[in-house]
């Protein structure tokens, strides 16, 4: 598989992943562009092209965390349409609320949740993308869920079973 074939076929999935991390379309586009450039530069070193997607996701994740740490994109997430509290946890308002709360999580915790509950990666796979131990992944996910539970209220359903 050539780099062009890889980039063309996986661009959509990588962009959606980046969007979930960044919460902003423009930043997601920047993240994917940056990550694909690095993948292109290192393409000949990726002995198995099937590793390219994992490598690119890792670059997206670490780049996103790095940008966040430098506070380069914290400001001005639109929130004018978000209600004060979710009324019904089953309706769309709850999802809007949850999305806003996800944006407030520290980047590593948000990345861990996206990898576990959107990408459906296992804990060891998540640890590999984040470059940390399995134990750290467990604690990141657990802490993130605890925060969401606290902020959303007990009736909005982030059950302990989520961690596995």
């Amino acid at each position: 598989m050539s780099f062009a074939e890889f980039a063309t076929s996986r661009h959509g999935a990588l962009y959606r992943y980046a969007y979930l991390l960044a919460g902003d379309r423009g930043l997601a586009e920047d993240l994917v562009q940056e990550a694909l450039v690095k993948t292109y530069v290192g393409w000949h070193r990726l002995r198995d092209p099937s590793n390219a997607e994992a490598y690119t996701r890792r670059v997206i994740t670490t780049t996103a965390i790095g940008w966040w740490r430098r506070k380069s994109w914290r400001a001005e997430l639109p929130n004018g349409d978000v209600p004060d509290r979710p009324v019904n946890p089953d309706d769309v308002t709850a999802r809007v609320w949850l999305w806003q709360e996800l944006q407030k999580l520290p980047p590593r915790q948000r990345a861990a949740l996206v990898l576990r509950y959107y990408e459906d990666l296992t804990e060891p796979q998540t640890a590999e993308v984040l470059g940390c131990s399995v134990g750290t992944v467990k604690s990141q996910v657990s802490d993130a869920l605890k925060k969401l539970r606290t902020r959303l209220g007990a009736d909005v359903v982030l059950k302990a079973g989520m961690t596995e």
Binding site: Y19, L20, P89, A94, R95, L98, W99, L102, L113, V114, Y117, Y118, L148, V156, V157, L158, K159, G161, M162
Partner: peptide
């Protein structure tokens, strides 16, 4: 739950 979190992420 997980559905709410999964649904939210998938929807977005």
């Amino acid at each position: 739950m997980n559905d709410l979190l999964r649904d939210t992420l998938a929807e977005r």
